[in-house]
């Protein structure tokens, strides 16, 4: 409960701070790639959480590190006149999809287990009633 409140609070701060800011158009490409890196890290975090191997340090370092590398790639690409940022975009989006598929599988397995368990419980109840 506490955690959700804290996170919502930070999200609210972000919303307020972001509302009043307009990124210069030249920088917007960097920001877009950073956003993609953030979303990718979040999906990775959700997968790790589902596998019960979530580590905050790994998550945070990935969250900010990935964004930083993506920004550096965009910068380098602009200097060399090659759209290297496309590499970041492709990697992040493919990882996003693969992570989503993992999430899907785990969630489906869990729901299937639940259904099976509830059926078993019902059958057991009926058996005990019969006896």
């Amino acid at each position: 409960m506490m955690g959700i409140i804290i996170i919502l609070m930070f999200a609210g701060f972000g919303l307020i701070a972001g509302m009043n800011l307009i990124v210069p158009y030249a920088i917007s490409k960097y920001v877009a790639v950073a956003i993609l890196a953030f979303i990718d890290s979040i999906f990775g975090g959700i997968v790790a959480n589902m596998k019960k191997s979530f580590d905050l340090r790994v998550f945070l370092s990935g969250f900010f590190g990935n964004a930083l590398i993506a920004i550096v790639l965009v910068f380098l690409g602009e200097r060399l006149n090659v759209d290297i940022y496309l590499a970041a975009v492709i990697v992040f989006s493919t990882r996003l999809f693969s992570n989503f598929s993992i999430i899907r599988r785990i969630a489906l397995d869990k729901t299937a287990e639940k259904i099976v368990n509830s059926r078993k419980a019902k059958e057991e109840k009926e058996e005990t009633n019969d006896v």
């Binding site: 609070m9 972000g14 972001g18 990124v23 920001v31 956003i35 905050l56």
Partner: peptide, 18 residues
Amino acid sequence: LGLAVFALVFVFVAQLNT
């Protein structure tokens, strides 16, 4: 975690604005 969320929301909203 909240700091991370702050960074994401902040950047996201700013980008939408632009």
